[in-house]
Design a protein around this nucleic acid. Structure first.
Lengths: 338, 338
DNA sequence: TGAAAAACTGTAAGCGCTTACATTCGACGA
DNA sequence: TCGTCGAATGTAAGCGCTTACAGTTTTTCA
């Protein structure tokens, strides 16, 4: 009874008594077909439940209506909100997001990019600007639009939609200084191939240096972005002397880990120890005390990146970078030096 | 200089001095081509940086090496870990995950399913079993493998990889009762088209009923899965009398919201109020007090679902359901009745 | 009213790859 | 040396869609 094979454009054409070209036109440039014809075709389409074959379309048009994104990870919520925003924008334009994760590994990122390219994505959204030059060379060799997010284009000519990580971190460090802290430590993300992490460290260092303080192996620990790593880092910092009175963290996940570690060590936050984060993910507001952190405009970054990549689809004049401003969100985890 | 057009199979064939068929065979069934020929072809492939055109391949093979998944949301971490697990498994088999979000809306889910189908996914992973019968009819009409996760197949013939939400919730409620609570309220997720939320409520109700208690409009509030909604729900519950001494939540996000709300209201947890969650996302362990919750085997569900859908690719004997067991994780948010 | 212009619609040639079928090659036994 | 047979390879027909170009209808305007 049921014809298992899905209907093809030819079936629609037959049912509507027109040619396949006309059906195709109804789908792709409805304006060019007469109203009366179009409605007949549309009826046939919906009666048959026709839906164009993606591969065939991609083959004929050399366009997939898919854009790809490679993010470091989905495990923590850092990129989730931004991606959701990207998706919202894309789906308004009948475009799908193909997502891949690199696990913060540049080789893995390169492979994922290759996979996405192979699938013929029409554009690519990548996080940050630090990656091996081979990867950049590969990107150059295919001519598809690329947008980098979470960065401001300091070290690349690609279009960037993000913010100034260094300045934001500097601002945070300055605030910590303003609260009277002098024994300040930092738990940073792994800086290798992670420009965001590196710039945040630089920003903190600038502020400390300007205040006559140092940021070096004694008070800086790199840790992967996880709760455990954060907790562990704090334990190591606290075993040194002088003990820090404030810990600036490379992101909120680390800060949450440090907070957890502080609790385990019986330290009161912020009385004994102030903690700050970065990114302002939801987690930051639900912790007790709330995390003082840098608010990043996730959604606006996502929207803008999506818009930009769609624009570049048709209009390849390089539209400029966007650098959003960030806000400091002061919550309970930061207090004056004890 | 650079030939911009990516190399096609014909270029490889020419470079290797063989026919396109042979190149294709090297890629798809290397065993059927002589070792010496194959190595020549492979060399040509890597020299040219050839990579097969996805659309063309999909068209010719009617297979995309893509599996789709529709999840409710990426915003909270509930599905992230499971998805990551799915991806890990799939990428071992050169298969890509195409992800879409429904926002807990059955219509939107139907649309997303349609989009994924249209893109020719070779299989589909969906969350839960409650969806309009039109959606199920559509799924049936295309013959691609489907796997439902987070449920146990109570109300569907599709393959399910999950756990018994009702039993788990009942166990949690029983534990709360065992802690001596009698004034128990529940903040559930929206049950409409969400079998997980509904079953969890049923489970709690069963336990309460067995203990001679009721779960009804007085002590049950449905709320969307967000911190704010959780906090708000608590405020409403606390304005009633008798006030609950324990609040069982439909998931960890709601529980976190309730916890936040409790703090805002100056309630001490667990001294004045016990709170429990469900899912055991990372958030649960980082809160203070830690959230007593039901641990769900995210990763194992993900792996198993991916394996199953890959199996179904080649072997359509319906391999049975899998129902994992869940564990109760008791943390500080649950205490004896005050 | 008729010719030219404009607006539609149809024809058919690909898009790059897979694969059934045909052909060629090479080893082996007679 | 020749014929046979299996293995390796080539030929060419699609897969379902888009779109340049040609052909047809409708509209416009003198």
């Amino acid at each position: 009874m049921d014809i298992k094979r899905p209907p093809r454009i030819e079936d629609v054409a037959r049912a509507a008594g027109v040619s396949t070209a006309t059906v195709s036109r109804c789908l792709n440039s409805p304006a060019t077909v007469r109203e009366s014809t179009r409605s007949i075709v549309e009826e046939a389409i919906s009666k048959l439940g026709y839906t164009p074959h993606f591969g065939a379309r991609a083959l004929a048009m050399n366009r997939t209506h898919t854009i790809g994104a490679v993010i470091p990870t989905m495990e923590n919520a850092i990129f989730a909100r931004g991606l959701q925003a990207v998706q919202e924008r894309l789906s308004d334009s009948e475009t799908t997001l193909l997502l891949a994760c690199s696990g913060y590994d540049p080789d893995r990122e390169a492979r994922q990019i290759r996979t996405l390219m192979q699938r013929g994505v029409d554009g690519l959204i990548l996080i940050g600007e630090a990656r091996p030059k081979e990867t950049y060379a590969f990107l150059q060799s295919r001519e598809i639009p690329i947008v980098l997010v979470w960065c401001d284009g300091e070290s690349t000519d690609h279009i960037c939609i993000g913010f100034d990580n260094r300045a934001a971190a500097r601002g945070m460090a300055q605030t910590v200084l303003d609260y009277g802290h002098r024994q300040i430590a930092m738990v940073a993300g792994i800086m290798d191939w992670n420009d965001r992490a590196a710039r945040r460290v630089e920003g903190v260092r600038q502020a400390l240096t300007a205040a006559g303080l140092d940021l070096n192996a004694d008070n800086l620990i790199e840790a992967e972005y996880s709760l455990e790593a954060g907790a562990l880092a704090l334990r190591r910092l606290m075993s040194r002397s002088p003990r820090p009175t404030a810990v600036i963290c490379g992101n909120d996940v680390l800060a949450a880990g440090v907070l957890q570690g502080a609790r385990q060590m019986g330290l009161r936050v912020p009385d004994d120890l102030s903690i700050t984060g970065f990114d302002d993910i939801e987690l930051a507001s639900v912790l007790d005390p709330g995390l003082t952190t840098v608010h990043v405009p996730h959604r606006r970054m996502g929207w803008t990146a999506a818009d930009r990549i769609l624009e570049l689809q048709t209009d390849d004049r390089a539209n400029g970078n966007v650098s959003f401003s960030t806000d400091l969100v002061v919550r309970g985890s930061l207090a004056r030096r004890p």
